[in-house]
């Protein structure tokens, strides 16, 4: 067992792996940028006309539209447009919001932390439910709690989070008046949206924790620990639990995308001023630069998070192969 301090310094193989993974991310990121750029091509209507008619009551003249087209370079070949757009994006310039006139980059970065904290809240609630229930239902396999958790997992995967959020508001905010129903503030504002988000995640993680723990409990080192005369509690918590959590971390990373997507929708339930509210308002207001910037931005966040999860997994379990 290497000392913790040593683990933090990546080995040569680890560094090579990180580099290779980063390089393999490039085509994906490029593809994502192509899709986001290509999506603008399917927008109904002429973007130059839309932009030229902004903030005016009268229809723009043909000359005005052409002027906008030339100014934005929309009359140039697509490939050139893409290259120029990509060049700007790399420098963090995602254009201006048509609605507010603010730089899109600024609008997105201000709201990202708020959406991330919501997703993180959901993740924490999910883990808080899933780990104890998962562990106990592995230990008391086929007993009452295990059956309950089986039903809970099925329900959790079938209940839409936005409806759960609405029901939680009805009960805890409207009926009981215990918690605020909307807006962002202290910890109290966090509880309901996090619960609405976390239940679905806990459903997935709960059964996974149970299945993995059961598998580990069959292994030889667990038998050794039992043979030493350790209590069942010590066997499970001190020996079997840690190795069984690795797949849970992997799935947690994959779940992050769902949590992020769920957070975007949950925001409208709780009037949470994050990316979801921004993008919804932009969609209804046809604010294309914001939608496009959002797509690119959120995907990069997602790809990076998965990358980090991958590294964490490899760090947790050195047996995981370094091959790509």
């Amino acid at each position: 067992m290497p000392r913790p301090g040593k683990l933090l310094i990546p080995s040569r193989r680890m560094r090579q792996y990180i580099l290779r993974r980063l390089v393999s991310l490039l085509p994906v990121i490029l593809g994502v940028s192509l899709i986001t750029f290509g999506l603008m091509g399917v927008v109904p209507g002429d973007p130059a006309e839309i932009i030229a008619s902004r903030g005016k009551d009268v229809e723009p003249t043909q000359a005005e539209i052409e002027a906008v087209r030339e100014e934005l370079g929309l009359d140039q070949p697509l490939l050139l447009q893409y290259a120029r757009w990509l060049g700007r994006v790399v420098r963090g310039d995602l254009g201006m919001s048509l609605r507010t006139g603010q730089p899109v980059w600024h609008e997105l970065t201000v709201r990202l932390p708020r959406t991330l904290e919501l997703a993180a809240g959901g993740m924490i609630i999910g883990l808080l439910i899933a780990l104890p229930v998962g562990i106990l239902s592995a230990v008391w396999r086929d007993r009452f709690l295990d059956q309950v958790s089986r039903v809970l997992a099925l329900l959790g995967a079938s209940v839409p989070s936005f409806w759960l959020g609405t029901i939680l508001i009805l009960f805890f905010a409207v009926r009981l008046g215990w918690l605020p129903s909307m807006g962002r503030g202290g910890l109290r504002h966090f509880i309901l949206p996090s619960c609405a988000l976390g239940l679905g995640t806990s459903a997935v993680l709960m059964r996974l924790t149970r299945a993995n723990l059961l598998e580990v409990l069959n292994e030889g080192f667990v038998r050794t620990a039992r043979a030493k005369g350790l209590s069942e509690k010590a066997v499970v918590l001190r020996h079997a639990l840690k190795p069984s959590l690795l797949p849970v971390v992997t799935v947690l990373g994959l779940q992050f995308g769902n949590l992020l997507g769920g957070a975007l929708i949950i925001e409208t339930v709780f009037a949470w001023p994050g990316l979801g509210m921004l993008v919804l308002r932009s969609i209804l207001g046809r604010d294309f630069p914001v939608i496009q910037g959002f797509a690119l931005f959120i995907t990069l966040v997602f790809v990076l998070v998965n990358f980090v999860v991958d590294l964490v997994c490899r760090w947790l379990d050195p047996r995981v192969q370094y091959g790509v």
Binding site: L39, G261, L264, F294, I298
Partner: peptide, 22 residues
């Protein structure tokens, strides 16, 4: 396929609908 799966699915759907219109 890899590129499409790189997007979180609900977010890509959100963006497509957003651009095409509700």
């Amino acid at each position: 396929v890899d590129t499409v799966l790189a997007f979180p699915s609900i977010i890509l759907a959100l963006v497509v609908v957003g651009l095409l219109g509700p």
